[in-house]
Design a protein around this nucleic acid. Sequence first.
DNA 1: GTTACATTACTCGGATAGTCCCTGTCCGAGTGTGCGTGG
DNA 2: CCACGCACACTCGGACAGGGACTATCCGAGTAATGTAAC
Lengths: 157, 157
Amino acid sequence: MKLPESAEWALHSVTALAQVPSEAVSARRLAEHFGLPAPYLSKQLALLVRAGVLSASTGPRGGFRLARSASSLTLLDVVEAIGGSADPYTCHEIRQQGRGAAPPEECIEPCLLAQKMREAYLAWRESLRAVVISELVGSLSDEVVARTRASLTRTAG
Amino acid sequence: MKLPESAEWALHSVTALAQVPSEAVSARRLAEHFGLPAPYLSKQLALLVRAGVLSASTGPRGGFRLARSASSLTLLDVVEAIGGSADPYTCHEIRQQGRGAAPPEECIEPCLLAQKMREAYLAWRESLRAVVISELVGSLSDEVVARTRASLTRTAG
DNA sequence: GTTACATTACTCGGATAGTCCCTGTCCGAGTGTGCGTGG
DNA sequence: CCACGCACACTCGGACAGGGACTATCCGAGTAATGTAAC
């Protein structure tokens, strides 16, 4: 089980944008801030826009900013936007295949294994949903926030 | 985030073997029972042996059986054996890279994002650890268990 | 009847190709800004 | 001084190759049961 590395980029980008609510930040500037390849980061940010986490604006002084308040965004929103939201376990109903196939009337409700795996997945989701971006940013020291703003703000390029 | 399809095979195989404690079941017979490709299933069963979940015996009347009692095996043991145990989120310390790099003295403890993602992962693990194989098998109807035994037992091939 | 042994058939385990998703890259369409010009 | 229009430079969004993991497959080494033959 593996989450794409871009999930880390998306999470850091969102928390960084939450520290700069005044102006939009371009993908290129974010990439320079984190030392990441700009074009691929753009693709991930586009996914966040499509999911309603970020809003994009084109042209000069354009870029990305939070589409909603940081207090209404959770880690789950970001992970879902990247595509890591699918249940890692998918039941292929192999109990209905092969020599030991179960008759369909026994398979009305999902098999126990799928149920238990899904419960674990839901526990993971709820744990992520409990973390709000604003709380995360609020626990950062002023020094860290100041450095982030200095690196991302257009005037201090 | 995706768990390999072989995880499903491993989980079903372990629960099936837990229903046939009397004799060893070969990979070929398990594959026929579930309608799966036998060679690849063998590879997954070998992983379970290496992890100490199953024990293998060669030669005629050989095959696989549980290495420990079904009451001491959990879903987490099986998933770990397949290789789905790694934390899906890996922190690459991008906070120390790029223009906004944080000085090393600020990075003694892992970043908040990695901590929160790890907490969610641990919640997932604990949810899987709480499911014991023997309980799962015990909740099956006698009819289902009888069919499984009939399909896997050597005498009724 | 018992025992030792060679045969035999069956088992697992590791080494070998094919396919899909993630990573990384590029270029084109669209737009808000800023400046120059005219009134 | 102000309004207007234009050129510009900057932005995002989608289309195009490369690599690694999962899926699928094959064959060889090893072993326990078994039938046989000798004692």
